[in-house]
Each structure stands twice: as C-alpha cells, then as structure tokens.
Design a protein around this nucleic acid. Structure first.
Lengths: 244, 244
DNA sequence: AGGAATGCTTGACTTAGATCAAGCTTTACT
DNA sequence: AGTAAAGCTTGATCTAAGTCAAGCATTCCT
C-alpha cells in the first residue's frame, strides 16, 4: 500500500568502493583505473523478489552475480519432480559459475528472500579477464572456492551421519558469519527446513529431530529459524569428519 | 629385471598434434603459432606409477594435468582416517583445478594404475590464459565441466537409492567411453569395488549386491572389473532422477 | 611355487533414518 | 479479521542399507 519505492530491477547508485562487500567480491590489487573500469561494468543492486529466479537451467550465461543482501539457492531438478539443492549463497558470495561449461546455466538459482545482487555481464567479464591479470586471478580463486565448497558437501553427504551433517553445517554458517563481521553466536537461517533437509540429504523430519536433539543437549537453542549456538566447541566436536 | 625402459617421470617425444587426446584436452581454434606455444609449454607423457600420488593436499599448485592413459582418483581424507572420493579421471580428463582457491591443492590425486599425464605448469598456464582468449575460454569450459560433474554427483548422493546410483554411474561411463571412440558396451572399470562404493556413498557389500542384482536381472554381465552392458535401455531406465 | 595379503561376494542380523500420521504454529491470502 | 495453506515438530512403524562374519578368488611378494 505504501511504497513509493520502485522495487523491481531498478538500479541504485551505491558505488563499489562504498559497498561493504567490495573486499569480498572484488579481486585485490586493482589500480584506480582498473577499479573504475570494473565499477562501470557492474550493474548494481538489482532486486530479485523472494521465490523469483535469478536464472534457470538452460538460460544463456549473461552474467556473474554477487549477492549483496538476501540469499540465493541453486538446485537441480529431475524429471520425476525431485530437486537437489546444490548450494546456498549469502551476502558476499558469487553465483553463476555453473554456466562455464557451455555458456548455458546448468542449474536453477532462486531467491530465498527478497535479494539484491550486483551483476557483471559476461561480455565485460571476458574483457576484464583478458586485460587485467588480477581480475583473472581473483575469478580463478572464486571458482576454486566454489569447487572447494562442493567437495566439502560431497564429504558431508558421503561420510557423515545426519547429526554430524547438521552440526557441520551450523558450524560452517557460524564461522562464515563471524568472518563477515556478523554474529557467529546467533543468526537467522534464511532457508526453510525443507530446503535445508534436502541440501543435507535427509528427510525434514530427521532434520527437525536433529535440531531438537542438539537443543536437548544444550548445544544450541532453536527458535524456528533463529539459531543460538550455546557451545561452539561441542558443536564443532560433533564434526568428526573434519579434513585432515 | 628386464627393463631397459626408464619408467619414472621421463619425458617422451609424442607431439600434441599427434596425440589422440589433443581434440579433448586442447581448446579449439588456436592459430598454428599459438598451438606451438602451447605445445612447447607442455611436459609430455609423465609416468605416475600405480598408487603414487600426482599431488597431495597442501602441495603447491604447480600444474594442470591431462590424463593420457591410465586413471586418477581424487579424494579428501578426514582426521579420523576416512576418505571421500571426489572423482575418477580417465584419459582425456583434466585434473588439478582444486588448487585454484589458494594455489595449494585441496585434495589428493592418486593413480589407480600406471598412468601417463601431460603437464601444463601454472606459469605457462597464466601466460597463455593472459594472452590467448581461446585458451582462456577452453579452460573456463573445462572448469565448468568439472563443476557440472560435481553437481551430478551431489544429485546422485542426495537423491538416489543405491541401485540407481550404480546404474547411473555405469551409464555415464558407458556413454563417456562411446564418445571417446571406445566401446560403450564392454569395458574395464579401473577402480576397485572399495573405491567405487566410497565414491557412490555406499558399503562395498551393498555395491557388490547391486552388481549381482543387475546381473541377475540380465541388464549387465559382470566379470570382476570387466563389465558388459547387455541392455543399455533398461540400465538407463533405472536412472529415474535424470535432470529435467 | 607357495603363502600372505587384498579384493570380492554372499548370508544373517541390526539399525539409522525414511515414511506415515497427526497436531500445532506461523504466514499468506481475500 | 478470518480462513487456508505452509512450515515445523513429535510419535509410531517400517525398510533400505549398514555391519558382522565367513569363504573363495586373485594378486602380490619372496
């Protein structure tokens, strides 16, 4: 009813160097001139409404996206109507590398809540990667981190029992939030139980039971999507399968 | 005893344009001059003995490797001595992208059998990516394919029952062999049951039972590691969770 | 060639987690 | 505001797959 605010795909004027995420999503060591080039190539603060798709499988690869606020999930859908969630992308994360193989996206990317992204279109991407070495390296690093995240998830799905999967996930989110300057002790999960269960390869009921268990054990406190970590040590200790 | 052949890390003189894998591992559309540059940057036919490591976690990122013959498995090891196999790399595949995140390998890469690889060291890699656009694009495509493979495995581990996992795996190997000009009907699996079971997230015993089941159903014929696919259609039909 | 170790298969039994079912709470819609 | 629809939790039951155990086949080593 209120809303004089235009809220769909409207560019705003937040400059990259004022953006709190610049240190996360931009490669370091650009010259002033290079930074200007990068900035001018980026479309800023595009809004994706909750449940809308940032892109869908088979869409042409138009851009790489940086999540500024909100969150995105990527997933594969199967012919029989099931889905497998591949990743959750939070502020500071880059999305869109799945289309590198053949210039078409190979999965869906959907907003879990109203989300703002910055967008670097692929033409500019190619230009910048061609002419700026640190840009190329920064992107390689990002792709490598993406591969690393997926390896971690494979380990989770392949080796861990359900309780350990959840414990590892929560520890990961906590540490991630902390490293971004948010609270690692208390945070909201942006995704519904259904999505988290799918991501962690278990039934919703099992996930719910594991939340309850961790709460009964006094390790966390759960209030719907608000999680408080009471004992980070014990939570982390449940992750037996940490990488050597 | 015999062996006048030196068999360790000895360069041989197979030129890239004579290599049957060139069409697989090289980006298309290089000029003659660019191809020469690439060729001279590549160390050819380095032998990795069975069970030796091509690299280990935390090793510095020295090169990208192309499997010429033999096979490589990559894996994560956990503190409690478990491992999760992340991928099997067969002739024509590229290995080593796991070190993109921080110039150190994030997993182990071990030869399943005596294996020959070609090696493109990272200095040359950076040079070539900087100066040759099609080289850059080819590498991006390869990284994208790597991400796609991992997505597929996540779907397998997250959604499929054990029989379907094996069926999907065998169909994949079969199609891959076919597309490489080998037989899609009959082939040897390069990995022991133990490794395949780990990769597919199940116990060895379960894997063995699933092989037996598929054989009893007349879908495949199993003779240790030699697999013959009797009914590709029925095998593929067991993969309910194909991507939309 | 012989023995040890590794790899694979099959059977019997157990269990972690799925499924089914119900109720309760929060959010969304008109 | 009031109702419908999602979302979440807990309990009871069932089952796919894990574990334990044994035996045979193959490869490796001296």
């Amino acid at each position: 009813m209120s809303s004089s605010r235009i809220s769909t795909n409207k560019k705003t004027t937040v400059a990259c160097n004022n953006c709190s995420l610049s240190e996360l999503c931009l490669p370091r060591g650009l010259t002033k001139e290079e930074l200007t080039r990068l900035e001018s190539a980026i479309d800023k603060a595009i809004k994706i409404n909750k449940k809308d798709y940032l892109y869908r499988r088979d869409d042409p690869h138009q851009a790489i996206y940086a999540v500024k606020s909100g969150s995105i999930k990527t997933s594969l859908s199967t012919l029989d109507g099931e889905e497998q969630i591949l990743g959750f992308y939070l502020p500071g994360d880059l999305v869109g590398f799945d289309a590198f193989a053949n210039s078409k996206h190979s999965c869906d990317a959907q907003a879990l809540e109203d989300t703002f992204v910055c967008e670097l279109n692929m033409n500019s991407f190619h230009d910048l990667c061609g002419s700026i070495a640190s840009m190329r390296n920064g992107m390689m690093r990002q792709v490598g981190m993406e591969i690393g995240r997926e390896h971690q998830l494979l380990l989770t799905l392949g080796q861990m029992r359900t309780e350990e999967r959840l414990a590892t996930f929560l520890t990961g989110i906590s540490e991630r939030n902390q490293s971004r300057g948010f609270s690692g002790r208390e945070f909201y999960l942006p995704m519904p139980r259904h999505d988290l269960a799918n991501y962690l390869g278990m039934a919703v009921e099992t996930l719910s039971r594991m939340f309850s268990r961790l709460q009964e054990d006094g390790i966390i406190s759960v209030n719907h999507r608000l999680i408080e970590i009471l004992s980070p040590e014990r939570l982390k200790g449940l992750g037996h399968h940490q990488c050597r």
